[in-house]
Design a protein around this nucleic acid. Structure first.
Lengths: 227, 227
DNA sequence: CGCCCTCTTGATCTCAATCAAGCCGGGTGG
DNA sequence: CCACCCGGCTTGATTGAGATCAAGAGGGCG
């Protein structure tokens, strides 16, 4: 199922995506690559949403990130992909062979800089996720994830269509799906969000939500959930 | 999954560190840089131990990693350092100005590759930490950290001098210092480790410890702590 | 010797996990 | 068109792991 990518002819560098880039389309819940697959390619998301995850020996899944248009996949190096990449909805990517990228680095320092930057921002995002998972209450974690998704899926409006199920949100945040669901209900009861559909969130009170997400406002976590 | 001791052996090119490298020494608990400092330099650890951390608005500290000889600091890009770097014991580093590194990339693709690789392995380690914090029990998290430190501080023996206090271990793992202490006591009671001093751990049963760290062996977590 | 700091251990409380029904919406087939 | 079914979501009841509060114990240093 993994896409076989052939050798590409050597291309003059200095622009991105390179000439040899191969456009590919994935339907929702198809894999771009699996954990352990040979890492032959880099991918750039043209549009859609991709979930990065790894699975532990005990079967527990940890989501390592949610990636959108413009993000690169497979930059972390290594012969094999150490995490899986799953399209959360119909997603188009450009794929470029590693070998070609490697060749291009030789005569295009700008490309190296771009990759370095992408890798650095990947690192930054992962560290933020780690901070959230390591030090926030359930309510704060959910608030942080909602704000992140709202800020990232781009349309600028306060309404987000969630690309993740409750269970996936749980795997992202180190929580169970029930706790995620309860937290969403609580945020709704607090009038910080609205939930017109279970996969659609409207941010009603951005600032209080982000206080929760940063761990200030410990108070809102407490108290009976009655409206 | 936590502990591939050798993920990416990062081989410096023959001319690393570069000519302009500045050797610096830091005493225990001195900062190499603070959160928010201008990121003027890259650092390479010659010897010692460095703790990376960030502090949230509510004052909670999250340790983002523990770094040893050979690791690079400050590769994640950005004008400012987004995390602090603290020497856990006497530590010597080489510092190289970013500007110089940037210049060198232009005529040395190998350098770009090395940085990319270092950044990738940083990413990998952070993802492993995230997985541990997001999906393991307290006992498993502590087991994973001990194995990681044992594998990394190098001397190969089963005995490790911990570079972290209980409180720092807690901040690394998303636990309180009391829970860390109790978990260590439990591991000792289970005869998986010995604690000749509170800062010295001897690994007695590597395989069962790593089962705990991977989430297999959920059983050991349960049960009264009596020997 | 005595102070101070960190670590250990104990008792209790709380938040999130677990176990267990319902509920809602969307799709299918009669 | 409606009845049914199925998967994901919500909500409730209970349990339990880890946080919190609170005392000691050990060890290093002035």
């Amino acid at each position: 199922m993994a896409l076989n990518v052939e050798r590409f002819p050597v291309q003059p560098p200095s622009h991105w995506p390179p000439m040899g880039a191969q456009p590919l389309t994935f339907a929702a819940s198809e894999h771009i690559f699996h954990e352990g697959d040979d890492a032959n390619c880099l991918y750039e998301i043209k549009d859609g949403v991709v979930i990065l995850y790894s699975t532990a020996l005990d079967g527990v899944r940890q989501l390592l990130g949610v990636r959108f248009a413009g993000d690169l996949l497979g930059i972390s190096g290594g012969k094999q992909h150490h995490c899986g990449a799953l399209a959360a909805r119909t997603t188009r990517v450009n794929s470029i062979s590693r070998a070609q990228v490697d060749r291009m680095i030789d005569n295009d320092p700008q490309l190296a800089r771009r990759l370095l930057k992408a890798c650095g921002s990947e690192l930054l995002r992962t560290r933020e996720q780690l901070t959230i998972v390591g030090s926030r209450s359930a309510l704060g974690r959910v608030a942080a994830l909602l704000l992140d998704l709202a800020g990232r899926d781009g349309n600028g409006s306060a309404s987000v269509t969630l690309p993740l199920s409750r269970s996936e949100m749980g795997d992202y945040l180190g929580l169970t799906l029930e706790t995620v669901s309860r937290s969403m209900s609580r945020l709704k009861a607090l009038n910080l969000i609205a939930l017109p559909r279970s996969d659609t969130v409207v941010i009603l009170n951005h600032s209080r939500l982000s206080d929760l997400a940063s761990g200030i406002d410990a108070g809102a976590a407490r108290g009976r959930m009655v409206a």
